[in-house]
Design a protein around this nucleic acid. Structure first.
Lengths: 117, 117
DNA sequence: CATATATATGAAGGATTGATCATATGTTCA
DNA sequence: TGAACATATGATCAATCCTTCATATATATG
């Protein structure tokens, strides 16, 4: 019943010391990106932007969400460089930052699709 | 100052109706997967498993985390089929579920790496 | 069989998150 | 210039998440 925190029998200390994980900064950054992608609202935004650059009010219309909510969510995505903005007059037109973002999302969808076969 | 929720001038109702996003089930599922990947602890686990199948106590050792925490985190990953288990005697040996999971993580890391160039 | 080892899991509590509300900033146009 | 339009953002609060603690289950071994 009592459990100290000594190594289990399967552990090979030497081998374990050889294992490398990315530096904390990388893990933190990845964590933040996945954290951003974890929201349904933000995923929907990304799926729309995947097909066409859109301004805030278009996204707001298309997703039937408040301007404020969309704007807050776009900021999260923007701060992680998942989307970018350009100004067109009074409109802020958002678009997917790069190919990695598309692939990231596509890879996740693939994983799900394959589950149901 | 006053804002009703009517369409902005950039919106083309016809075009917006043509836009398609994945069904809610897919979005929910993707959301859950990204939610699982959003934890530093779980990302570290996945990076270790990427190189070698490992049991709970090995992971616990390698990451200097409690058995309970590791176990809880593995359950989250398992329930989303991001990792799988096989029993080896009294050990539960965990491994990455499939290639998509590897690519998903790799794609995210790539995105970060490219930012710093 | 009894004990040590390995893992799983429910409950609880503090920390974190996200939508909403209110308001500020910036742009266009009459 | 002033009014309407488009977007951004701070504050707040309910909901959610993650770790720890306590304990249960399952296997191995003497």
């Amino acid at each position: 019943m009592f459990m100290d925190n000594s190594a289990c029998k399967r552990v090979d200390k030497n081998q374990i010391e050889k294992l490398t994980i990315p530096p904390p900064e990388t893990i933190t950054r990845m964590s933040a990106i996945f954290q951003a992608l974890q929201s349904s609202a933000r995923l929907n935004i990304l799926f729309l932007l995947k097909d066409r650059d859109m301004c805030v009010c278009e996204l707001s219309e298309a997703l039937e969400a408040s301007q404020s909510a969309i704007s807050h969510n776009l900021r999260v995505l923007r701060q992680l460089d998942l989307v970018r903005v350009r100004k067109e007059g009074r409109f802020a037109v958002y678009y997917i930052a790069d190919e990695h973002v598309r692939l990231l999302i596509e890879m996740c969808r693939q994983h799900i699709i394959e589950e149901y076969r």
